[in-house]
């Protein structure tokens, strides 16, 4: 064994600056973050991009469209009072429902409710789920045990039942519905976030951050949250359609929004009663609902592929 078996004796060989320089002569000055990489991959995904555009257009139309529609969603056209086919002279561009209300206005309003429920209830789930999951994962030990056993118990409760009872006891309240659905949907979110936090917590870069003098709070803010975000975003896009569907189901059962307010689920329920006479009143809201669900799912899948760290 020579005394210095690994020192390279050529002059300059140990300086290594030129090597690094040569390696990266062609390199950009600006790096591309994982976010930018993911966005690029998402842009290459035709289905996800189309879905995103469709969703933006639909949401825009639902919220801005009613201004341009001559009838409001609750106004009854006393000249009609029954379901009629589209008629441009009366301003019922998609016809009326069985009470003579403008179908287009009702679909747009229903869309508002469905989008709002989707986003607000998911936000409730997001806040509770991320807080509980990150706390359980990062603190570990007893805190983790208690929180996760609670989640297990909640999973075992038939939650549809829970919502229905809530609705029956407290009456049909718009905001109560957001909360109730959010309370149901946070369970899976908390498990996902906890799992992610657990794997992150043992990563060397978290240890490195502690060695660099980081406090627990700064480590969570600088390292844990940005790294959990990708998974959370994917799960959020996949939760929104679930929530919309859940709301539709409640509305279908007559437990959703209070008439004359409506949602796509409620419209489908109304339409289903007259589907032999005016299939239009069922098909139009059903198409809107399915398109939205489809788009959210495609977008979620696209995001998952784009953010998948295995690909990098």
């Amino acid at each position: 064994m020579s005394d210095a078996p690994i020192r390279d004796s050529r002059p300059g060989a140990n300086l290594s600056v030129p090597n690094a320089a040569a390696l990266d002569k062609a390199a950009d000055v600006e790096g591309r973050s994982l976010w930018q990489d993911a966005f690029r991959r998402l842009q290459a995904n035709r289905a996800a991009m189309i879905s995103a555009i469709v969703l933006i257009v639909m949401a825009f139309v639902c919220f801005v469209g009613p201004v341009l529609v001559p009838w409001s969603y609750e106004e009854i056209d006393w000249d009609i009072l029954e379901a009629t086919p589209p008629n441009f002279d009366t301003g019922h561009y998609l016809g009326t429902d069985s009470l003579g209300r403008d179908l287009l206005a009702r679909i747009l309003q229903g869309g508002q409710v469905s989008f709002l429920v989707g986003i607000l209830a998911t936000s409730v789930a997001l806040v509770i789920g991320v807080t509980v999951g990150a706390t359980a994962g990062f603190m570990g030990g007893r805190v983790d045990q208690v929180l996760m056993r609670f989640v297990d118990v909640m999973y075992a409760v038939p939650l549809m039942f829970f919502i229905i009872i809530l609705m029956v006891v407290f009456g049909r309240n718009f905001y109560l519905m957001f909360l109730a659905i959010g309370f149901v949907e946070w369970l899976t979110m908390s498990r996902i976030v906890r799992g992610q936090t657990l794997t992150l917590k043992n990563k060397e870069f978290i240890e490195a951050a502690r060695a660099s003098g980081g406090s627990t709070a700064s480590i969570i803010a600088r390292h844990i949250i940005p790294n959990v975000l990708g998974v959370v975003i994917v799960y959020v896009t996949l939760t929104i359609p679930q929530v919309i569907l859940l709301e539709s189901f409640l509305s279908f059962l007559g437990l959703g929004v209070q008439p004359p307010m409506t949602s796509w689920g409620a419209l489908i329920a109304e339409g289903a009663q007259e589907m032999e006479i005016t299939p239009r009143t069922l098909i139009l809201p059903a198409v809107c609902l399915s398109t939205t669900l489809f788009c959210f799912n495609f977008l979620g899948d696209g995001l998952r592929d784009a953010l998948d760290p295995k690909d990098r």
Partner: peptide
């Protein structure tokens, strides 16, 4: 650390 890539936060 031993693993050069794992010891660097991928998002920084």
């Amino acid at each position: 650390f031993q693993d050069p890539l794992a010891s660097l936060d991928p998002r920084m």
